[in-house]
Design a protein around this nucleic acid. Structure first.
Lengths: 187, 187
DNA sequence: AGCACCATGTAAGTGGTTACATGATTCC
DNA sequence: GGAATCATGTAACCACTTACATGGTGCT
């Protein structure tokens, strides 16, 4: 009776098959491009899982009928697959299992030179500023007209907003924390 | 040449041994109480790792000399252990590997009834509000007087601030997102 | 010819959780 | 006596990453 130690790879794949048939390679790329800032899957998970999806009749494979093109094994989601995806989405989400290495290093910061912690925070700010630019670029491509706010755009915007405002928040926190640590040094 | 697929359990343990000798049980409790909102370790990791720490001379075991008390095997960090901990802290932190199940469900929200996504967000708000109370309670115990702002308090405050402001941010985002989704429904 | 990219996989290894086993101690 | 907690461990299992293998395609 495990609490929630199940792979979510299957649902990530089903979710991306929902919009259109895709190959394993397509799925990996789509994940990186759209949800990469909060989710990732490796080929080592995707390809075996696609095989299992077909076994369980949650997706069907169809070879490309154009023999001239590259070998490409695309999968389409079935009705059973859609139901399984919906069932999972309706389940309560699991909030546990976060691990933040930066915070752990910072928590132990009093055992090393404070300059090291400040350096980590500056690194983090640079990292988050890169992400911020990426988010802003992405955000600019969203339709601003409320008439174009279709459901799927709204859900995309929702996750994007999380990344955007979260990153801004991270930068602000890191800057404030640097000041805090500098003040402590001076005393 | 793995990029960073090494266990950090060893460093979490060393970090907690740094302040005083502890048993495996103590370490687990200390982690839950202080860094539980961004880190966790299980006994299945801690006890074998303590054994390994002793083998590698990063810690030494000493049985309690009071035979009347419970069996308790405490470990003390060695100089070598302190050096190893410091070495790790100085390394660049790894920001990768976050997975957010709530966001994934939300990203696929257009495939199910929007009420489900709103329900998830309301659940999330309740969850974060509980955490907020916990953080605020914890925060209130910190010394406010700048004179008492010792380094170790400052680093504790830094991580706590992350949790505190991050939780506030999460709540705000979730509330705004509910409004966004409600507006989409009405159209 | 050579490089970058497309594309599909597999094998090995690891980190981590969960469930279970065991027993002492404290407190009601 | 019984329950809760203290306390230490192990075995099994699993999700996931990494590294490797293989070969086609398109472009210069």
């Amino acid at each position: 009776m495990g609490k929630s130690r199940k792979s979510r790879t299957i649902y990530a794949i089903l979710g991306f098959l929902c919009s259109k048939p895709r190959s394993g390679y397509d799925i990996k790329k789509a994940i990186e491009k759209s949800v990469g800032f909060f989710w990732s899957e490796s080929y080592g998970q995707i390809y075996p899982m696609l095989k299992k999806l077909e076994e369980d009749e949650l997706a069907v494979k169809f070879e490309d009928d154009t023999p001239s093109s590259r070998r490409r094994q695309r999968y389409a989601i079935t009705d059973k697959g859609r139901r399984e995806l919906a069932r999972w989405i309706e389940e309560d989400a699991d909030y546990r299992g976060f691990r933040n290495e930066l915070l752990l290093k910072l928590f132990f910061g009093s055992t090393v030179d404070t300059a090291i912690s400040i350096h980590h925070l500056q690194d983090f700010i640079a990292h988050e500023q890169n992400r911020l630019e990426m988010f802003e670029g992405f955000h600019a491509t969203l339709p601003r007209d409320p008439g174009e706010m279709t459901p799927s755009v709204a859900f995309l915007a929702a996750t994007l907003n999380y990344g955007l405002s979260g990153t801004q928040h991270n930068i602000q926190w890191a800057e404030e924390t640097i000041e805090l640590l500098k003040n402590v040094i001076e005393q």
